[in-house]
Design a binder for these strands. Structure first.
Length: 472
RNA sequence: GCCCCCAUCGUCUAGAGGCCUAGGACACCACCCUCUCAAGGUGGCGACACGGGUUCAAAUCCCGUUGGGGGUGCCA
């Protein structure tokens, strides 16, 4: 049911392009916000100055927009909230919830090794009464006893024993807040009601709740830790190993609505089982409570199937418009290259039902826009395997088509197929040499339509060229 | 090591104790259609990880085992 009080946020850190996992997180936040008629906010988590790149922020905005994920209000840049973060750390310090620490990583590790057992911080500086220093960090004093509970809409209550949590750093020695600190403070100030993010953040959540409580915040937001999107080895998608940049999928010719629709099925399914459907319906049906618990494999094959359906559902004009950028990229002006939009429009209906991604289009229609180079395998399979038949069909086609009164696909079909049928040559075999002569390939759009679009002169020219390369 | 999460066809999922002989989608296979390739149509293959409980009844609840994953930074 609608609840306009719902406030979600997507909080990427600009350390790279938008990746699949981030896009899915953004989408589920957006679906939740729109489902309830609440707010979808954006926050850039750029507290790690060394790793954040401002120019990547714009790319993230563009990619979200491409996916049709919009947001409300001003984007919050975490880097501009230093004052609020420092004030919060100060409050923790004043109230004895946090303390200054001078320990280096090496010292911490050395002590851990010495005492054996669990690695991690031992609370060495807890009661040393240290003050600010350019080399000191601030650590949160985690209670020794009790437990911290994370209420998660997807996973139920998750319990963490406080003694398992070490005194974690909330402020770096350079004065910048750590992720959990900035995250907790900003979520409070932005009045976030639903924190929807990847499951990898679940172990950090008790720290955030501890900070909230330490800051005197009586409530916690509703958490929803989404199942991870994994690769074929069932590992979390990684930028190094896997193809995760959403921009790359855009460049390959995936439609944003197909991508968005597919992403919605990763960890969620509509009650009626209808997977491919308008986003409005998904918004209406989506419920965080229904999100799956286990990780989901990103299956490009299935994405392609979705994309193919979306492409076929496009109106012709829309299809052409979306295809053009891929054609102009592939068919950059040059010698022997003429990209004629009308020509593409003529063949487009046949192309539309044959591609799964728009990036496949140039290869399929290349023969219309420049001189062909016959594929070696194609030539061998059709011309060299049965030269007699190839010669017969090519000669027949040249004669019949030169004399054809009307240059239409139907007329071409009747002439060539009529010839083949009369001589009991299988249609499949009869068209093969002609196809290779015309397109240079064994597969492609319907041949007769292709020839109609190519035109009589160019078609005959190619047939004669191919014929010339075969024995007399 | 320790903490946490997860476990239904190859994959994404439906399933909230009897509607399950476990449904759908993608993939795969076969056939039909057909000028190639697609698209479309029809059919097929294919799963409740294992072991204990609870119950008249368990894919569904509980416990354990096994397996997988995530986390364990002055990254986020």
């Amino acid at each position: 049911m609608p609840d306009p009080a719902v406030r979600c946020r997507f909080a990427p850190s600009p350390t790279g392009y938008l990746h699949l996992g981030g896009a899915r997180t953004a989408l589920f936040n957006w679906l939740t916000a729109r489902h309830h008629g609440g707010q979808m906010l954006l926050r850039i988590e750029d507290t790690d100055a060394d790793r954040s790149q401002p120019e990547l922020v714009d790319l993230i905005f563009r990619t979200l927009t491409w996916l049709g994920i919009d947001w409300d209000g001003e984007v919050v840049h975490q880097s501009s909230r230093g004052e609020a973060h420092r004030a919060a750390v100060g409050r923790l310090l004043d109230e004895g919830r946090a303390y200054w620490c001078s320990c280096t990583r090496d010292e911490i590790d050395a002590r851990a090794k010495e005492r054996g057992g669990k690695p991690g911080y031992d609370g060495h500086c807890r009661d040393r009464g240290l003050g600010p220093d350019p080399t000191h960090v601030v650590r949160f004093r985690v209670p020794d006893d009790g437990e911290t509970v994370v209420r998660d809409l997807i996973r139920g209550d998750v319990h963490f024993a406080n003694h398992e949590l070490e005194d974690f750093v909330v402020q770096r020695s350079n004065g910048h807040p750590m992720f959990v600190m900035a995250n907790a403070v900003d979520d409070i100030d932005m009045a976030i009601t639903h924190v929807i993010r990847g499951e990898d953040l679940l172990p950090a959540t008790p720290k955030i709740n501890l900070i909230r409580a330490g800051l005197g915040e009586a409530t916690t937001p509703v958490f929803a830790h989404l199942p991870l999107i994994v690769n074929e080895k069932r590992q979390k998608l990684s930028k190094r190993r896997d193809d995760v940049a959403v921009e790359d999928y855009q460049a390959r010719g995936f439609l944003p609505e197909a991508m968005r629709n597919y992403l919605a099925t990763l960890g969620w399914g509509p009650p009626d089982g209808v997977e491919i459907r308008p986003i409005e319906e998904i918004v209406a049906l989506f419920r965080l409570e229904d999100v799956t618990k286990s990780s989901a494999f990103f299956d490009v094959k299935k994405l392609e199937a979705f994309n193919g359906e979306y492409i076929r559902a496009l109106g012709l004009g829309d299809f052409v418009e979306r295809s053009l950028p891929f054609l102009t990229t592939a068919f950059a002006p040059g010698p022997g290259m003429v990209l004629d939009e009308d020509t593409f429009v003529a063949i487009a209906p046949h192309v539309q039902e044959r591609v799964r991604v728009l990036g496949e289009i140039p290869e399929m229609v290349e023969f219309l826009f420049r001189e062909i180079s016959v594929d070696g395998d194609a030539w061998a399979k059709t011309m060299e395997k049965d030269p007699a038949l190839a010669v017969q069909m090519l000669d027949a086609a040249i004669d019949l088509l030169a004399a054809l009164p009307d240059w239409t696909a139907t007329a071409i079909n009747d002439a060539v197929i009529g010839y083949a049928d009369a001589r009991e040559i299988s249609r499949k075999k009869a068209q093969a040499p002609v196809r290779v002569a015309i397109t240079g390939r064994t597969v492609g759009p319907p041949l007769w339509e292709s020839m109609e679009v190519l035109g009589r002169d160019r078609s005959l020219e190619r047939l004669r060229e191919a014929r010339a390369q075969l024995p007399a």
